[in-house]
């Protein structure tokens, strides 16, 4: 299935892009992070991140569907 990924902050720097479309068989965000993290060399452990699908924070094991927009959120530093 096709997944739209958005990257922010250090993950965007590491990926070298702010977004990308990927074809993936990952059934949930946890598997997807392992897959793209390996390809881009993300050093941050998933336990430090949150994940949003289609603009909403979700559980790492929520099933993904074709066309989903997925965002891995590194620890925030606003304020």
């Amino acid at each position: 299935m096709k997944i739209r990924l958005l990257y922010f902050a250090s993950l965007a720097d590491c990926a070298g892009c702010a977004s990308e479309d990927v074809q993936s068989a990952a059934g949930h965000p946890s598997a997807l992070y392992a897959e793209v993290g390996k390809r881009h060399g993300f050093a941050m452990d998933a336990t430090r991140l949150r994940v949003a699908v289609n603009g909403k924070l979700v559980d790492w094991l929520q099933p993904l569907a074709d066309g989903d927009e997925v965002v891995f959120l590194p620890p925030v530093s606003g304020g």
Partner: peptide
């Protein structure tokens, strides 16, 4: 709550020319 939860990130640019995203 904003500082802890809202997805906003800070990239600091330092006097020595380096910069870095803060992920506390």
């Amino acid at each position: 709550e904003i500082k802890q939860h809202v997805p906003i990130w800070k990239n600091e640019h330092y006097a020595d020319g380096e910069s870095g995203w803060l992920h506390p």
